[in-house]
Structure formats: structure tokens, C-alpha cells
Computed example of a mutant assay.
Amino acid sequence: MTPPTPAEEVAIRSGDDVVRARRLVREVAQTARLSLVDQTKLVTAASELARNALVHGASGTARVELIQAGGRTGVRAVFSDQGPGIADVALAMTDGYTTGTGLGLGLGGSRRLVDEFHLDTAPLRGTTVTVVKWSR
């Protein structure tokens, strides 16, 4: 396994930062040679996750890196916040569940757009969502 390239990080404190995080994800996805469809899926998920960090966590970070494993190239994006955490993960992952402030995808929709999805959350500890999209 080739070690990943250095990760780039964007602080998420405003709507402009959400746009910067999306742009970074797209740039790394292009470097990974993801198809246009897969780039769009990953950027859409990243937009939702960055917006969640801003809205629910008051601020956060997006860390994006090019990764390689098993002859494949992909993108890993980690969205973290120090907010209140998600009290009901099952509800938050339910299709169609949204608080009405994002794209309406919710966490479940974001999960369907990527190849790997990991959610780590606890009340008063914040939330970290890690997503990976592999080139085909």
C-alpha cells in the first residue's frame, strides 16, 4: 500500500468555507481521476457534510487526501466538529430525514453517494464523518 499524500485541511466557519471545502474535494477527486459522475457524488456528499459541521457543530474542519490501496486511487474526506453530537444516530441515518437546512440528503443520502462511510459521534463530544470514494 502506497502511503497517502499529505492531507489538506479547511476550517469550516462560514458558508464560504463550505464552498472552499467542496472545491478542495473536487480538486483532489480530479487528481484521483474519479469519473465526472463519481466526482459529483463525492462533492455532493462533501457539501452536505461540511454544511452539517457548520450548522450543527457551529464550526468544524474538512480534511481531504488522495489515497491509494490495492492498486486503486481514491479520496478520503473527514468532516469533524465539536458540536453536541448526534443524539439519535438511527433517526439521523433514516432516508429522508433532514433538519431542513441542507441539501435534503441527510446522512443517509451522503452515505449512498460514497463507497465507504464511517460516523463517529457522541453527545457533547462532537461528530466526525469519514467518507471514501474510489476510482473505478
Rank of each mutant, 00 (worst) to 15 (best):
M1P: 03
P3I: 11
P4N: 13
T5R: 14
E8C: 03
E9R: 15
E9S: 15
E9G: 09
V10E: 04
I12S: 00
I12H: 00
D16F: 06
D17Q: 06
D17R: 00
V18L: 02
V18F: 01
A21R: 06
A21L: 06
A21F: 08
L24I: 04
L24H: 03
V25F: 03
V25T: 12
R26D: 15
R26F: 09
R26H: 12
R26S: 15
E27M: 05
V28C: 02
A29Q: 00
A29D: 02
Q30S: 09
Q30R: 12
T31V: 11
T31S: 11
A32L: 02
R33P: 00
L34W: 04
S35D: 07
S35K: 04
S35H: 01
S35C: 02
S35R: 04
S35I: 03
L36Q: 14
L36H: 12
V37A: 14
Q39N: 05
Q39D: 02
L42H: 01
V43S: 12
T44R: 01
A45M: 07
A45Y: 05
S47V: 05
S47I: 07
E48Q: 12
L49N: 05
L49F: 05
A53V: 08
H56R: 11
G57I: 02
S59E: 14
G60A: 09
A62R: 09
R63G: 07
V64C: 13
L66E: 11
I67H: 10
Q68H: 14
Q68K: 12
A69G: 00
T73K: 07
T73D: 09
T73C: 04
T73A: 10
R76E: 13
A77P: 08
A77E: 10
V78T: 13
F79N: 05
D81C: 01
Q82S: 13
P84K: 14
G85Q: 01
I86K: 08
D88P: 10
A90G: 06
L91V: 10
L91I: 06
M93S: 07
M93K: 07
M93Y: 06
G96C: 06
T98L: 11
T99A: 10
G100W: 09
T101Q: 14
G102C: 13
L103N: 10
L103M: 14
G106W: 01
G106Y: 03
L107P: 04
S110R: 05
S110G: 15
R111I: 01
R111C: 03
R112C: 11
L113E: 08
V114E: 06
V114P: 02
D115T: 01
F117S: 08
H118N: 15
D120A: 13
D120K: 09
D120G: 05
D120N: 12
T121K: 07
A122V: 07
L124M: 15
L124V: 14
R125N: 10
G126S: 05
T128L: 05
V129L: 09
V129N: 09
V129H: 09
V129F: 09
T130A: 11
V131S: 08
V132W: 00
S135P: 07
R136H: 09
